[in-house]
Amino acid sequence: MQNINNWLKSNTFHHSQFKDISRLVEEKEKQGVTISLCIPTLNEEKTIGKEVVIFKSELMDRYPLIDELAVIDSGSTDRTLEVAASFGADVYLSADILPEMGAKRGKGENLWKAIYQLKGDIIVYVDADIKNIHPRFVYGLVAPLIYRREIKYVKAFYDRPLALSGQIRPSGGGRVTEILIRPLFSLFFPELTALVQPLSGEYAARREILEKIPFPIGYGVETSHLIDVYSEWGLEALAQTDLDRRVHRHQATRDLGKMAFGILRVFFKRLKQREIVECLPELPTLLRQFQAKGEQYEQIVYEIFEEERPPMIEVDAYCNQH
């Protein structure tokens, strides 16, 4: 617990600590590091335009903090790529990157392929469905990596209430975090409970870390990253930044069930790999949910594989390129 308390004090930040972007750029240039921003998309035409405009103008044109702004798309059927390109983003179809490795559908696939496609020493991932987008979503995550070399992976959390009374208030994540992830972390990786929102889709990491960890292609990518980075480099390599508030689409409970299923498959796989749990049976890939039709109940079955991509460093094409 002492380690958690120390970590919360030393490795938890608020974005306002880093609002002097010119100082951040100066430090970045002094270190000679480059930063790539990756926005994974699938049918995000309503929000992508604003994200690209804000990030390009504020963090490329106004302050040269990011060196590359890329949208990696899973095959949108709307105008996501057209809108993103019209405001100056580099746009890629995930399937066109490393085509010899095949194309799989899932956010984790885009994040993984970004490591191959993008050039930055630091890659920052920001979801495309954020309605209240602001430059802090990038500089708040990148800054701890620039100012503290021992930090390797920075996760976003969203916690600023409208008024602070000084009294105790609950601080936490969404439904899946509170009823699945935090209990699991408490049981098996207690130190990881210090991450306020382990499932947040915004994070920044050093390439040297990203290329060495596997990427589940679906729901489990955030959970697996935390376990893998923690297991290999320790809690000190992780940090988190409060980005205040994130307005986004609300997910239906049924969809959260699918997410939880994917996360559990990834989680159990890691328990088995680390021999934390013995005699784990072969895990099925079918999630069963139910719905009522008149007086009849019927089963809906979803197949969720939660496949994983290997660490990029094991891919020949990547090693040849780097």
Binding site: V53, S57, D61
Partner: peptide, 13 residues
Amino acid sequence: REILLANLVLIGE
């Protein structure tokens, strides 16, 4: 153009 559009969004919100 993007400088103006970014300012527009940041101000308008």
